[in-house]
Nucleic acid binder design. Structure first.
Lengths: 227, 227
DNA sequence: ACTTCCTTGGAACGCCATTCCAGAGAGGCT
DNA sequence: AGCCTCTCTGGAATGGCGTTCCAAGGAAGT
């Protein structure tokens, strides 16, 4: 199909899959999911659709490649920390921050990327899970749970950020949602009403870390290190 | 804007928001995310686009309404079980099965539906969390974690089902992915390779329940009922 | 009967992903 | 040198999509 290799330089930098993916990430970051169109991409790269389609099969593949680029970068930094738990925390937080910075990634992680991107995350988490003393025959299950939580929380967080928009005030947004919760029907939403205030004051990142700790506590409770 | 009410019957059943949403759910179930188009919808309802747009603002709102209809139905059955834990399990499993049956829902839950659908789920989970003896000031955080895990796991599961397609053999699919994992680079994917066999034999539903139990164990570990 | 206004469906618009194709330009061959 | 080949390009064209506009249908109120 493709692979351009040894070729002398041109007036403009030669087109390549790498350069296309890079441009795609930039456009997605700037304008969100709907900001990536082949029209805009051809303009940005000063070329035509045919040139792009030579390097990339279709939009889905481009989206998957862009997602993989972001995740790979987030996973590139070796997680610091002495214990496996600390390393899981660091890895999870890195992923969370990456999804927060590129919030179009969330939708992709729950979609096409199973082929390449998810194994990457799975491997990173799994190594530390196995180091935690979880019995071997539970490795797959436990690792899956951790990955599912990380991706679920990151996706949820990105969804909130998306309805917000790039320039909006976060505190104002939380206050608005909190007020909306307080005005729900007391019969149907008694619980939600009572936590409306906590929701107003919460910090997304801290809550995510609390969630990781809770899952990790669950792992040690179900699979004690000594057993 | 809308609300049609007292009107005598016609040759064909009168159009209504309810009937449109119902048709949309049917089309999404039958043909997936891409199966819902206004063109096909007008044909199925034997009408024109203008008629539909009179009842529904745009496609996003229609998708949100369809999602809410599915989730509301899944949450309608009062969860059985004596303990709060059992009720959380029942509620979570109901949601998981609903997303599995309508796997286009997953993408929506991580998107627009924050306004209506997520509070519904949040309330259902939160009531049982508060009954578990979690300290009041942790209700929001703990409930969020549980909801995030449920949605994350359901989304992940639906994503797998989606690449599979309606008629494909599940065992065959697992075998194929498992084999692909076994052929990964041993240096980069040592962990993933060792659990490839477990992945081949796992059961999605059972693993989801194990995950719920793990999270619940984490809750009691961090917030002991007596404390 | 006449007016009003909710409701309908067809025609048209602009944008999108994708396909097709004529050809530019660099190596390799003779 | 000339020619051929094969990679790579970009412009034009296609079909499908969400959405808008609007002329009219038809029951309710007078």
């Amino acid at each position: 199909m493709s692979q351009q290799a040894r070729r002398s330089p041109r007036r403009t930098e030669a087109l390549s899959r790498e350069r296309i993916v890079e441009a795609a990430v930039g456009m997605l970051d700037a304008a969100g999911e709907g900001g990536l169109t082949f029209r805009a991409l051809t303009e940005r790269l000063a070329t035509g659709p045919g040139a792009i389609y030579w390097h990339v099969a279709n939009k889905g593949e481009l989206l998957a490649a862009a997602t993989d680029a972001v995740v790979a970068a987030a996973l590139a930094a070796e997680p610091e920390g002495a214990s496996p738990r600390d390393r899981i925390r660091a890895l999870a937080l890195g992923l969370f921050d990456a999804v927060d910075a590129h919030n179009w990634v969330a939708a992709q992680l729950s979609a096409s990327s199973w082929q390449v991107t998810t194994p990457r995350i799975f491997e990173g988490v799994g190594r530390h899970v196995s180091a935690m003393g979880v019995p071997r025959e539970q490795w797959f299950t436990v690792t899956s749970v951790v990955v599912q939580y990380i991706l679920g929380a990151a996706a949820q967080n990105a969804a909130n950020a998306q309805v917000l928009g790039p320039g909006a005030d976060r505190g104002e947004f939380l206050a608005k949602v909190s007020t909306a919760w307080e005005e729900l029907d007391p019969d149907d939403y008694s619980f939600t009403r009572t936590v409306a205030q906590q929701m107003r004051e919460h910090d997304d990142r801290q809550q995510f870390l609390d969630g990781i700790d809770l899952v990790l506590a669950g792992i040690t409770a179900v699979h004690p290190p000594a057993g």
